[in-house]
Amino acid sequence: MSAIASALYLARQDTYARFLSAADSESAVCWRKADDQYPTPDAARAAQDAAYAVTADAYNRMLVEPVGPHKEAKAVVEQIRQLGRASKDEQDWVAFKKAREVFVDACRACLVETLEA
Rank of each mutant, 00 (worst) to 15 (best):
A3Q: 10
A5I: 01
S6R: 15
S6G: 11
L8Q: 15
L8G: 09
L8M: 12
L10R: 15
A11C: 08
R12K: 15
R12W: 12
R12F: 15
R12P: 06
Q13V: 03
Q13M: 06
Q13Y: 10
D14S: 15
F19C: 01
L20V: 07
L20R: 12
L20M: 14
A23E: 00
D24C: 08
S25I: 05
S27T: 10
A28E: 14
A28Q: 12
V29W: 00
V29D: 01
R32K: 14
R32A: 12
A34R: 04
A34H: 04
Q37F: 03
P39V: 13
T40D: 00
T40Q: 02
D42G: 06
A43G: 07
R45H: 10
R45A: 15
R45V: 09
A47N: 00
Q48C: 09
D49P: 01
D49L: 13
D49I: 06
A51V: 02
A56M: 12
N60E: 14
N60G: 13
R61I: 03
R61L: 06
L63M: 06
V64Y: 08
P66E: 00
P66C: 05
V67T: 14
V67G: 09
P69H: 02
H70A: 10
K71E: 15
E72S: 06
A75P: 03
V77P: 05
E78M: 10
R81H: 12
G84L: 01
R85W: 09
A86H: 02
A86R: 09
D89G: 12
D89L: 13
E90R: 15
Q91R: 11
W93F: 13
A95I: 09
A99T: 01
E101G: 10
V102S: 11
F103A: 06
V104G: 02
V104D: 08
D105K: 14
C107T: 07
A109W: 05
L111D: 02
V112L: 13
V112W: 03
T114V: 13
T114Q: 03
E116D: 14
A117G: 14
A117I: 11
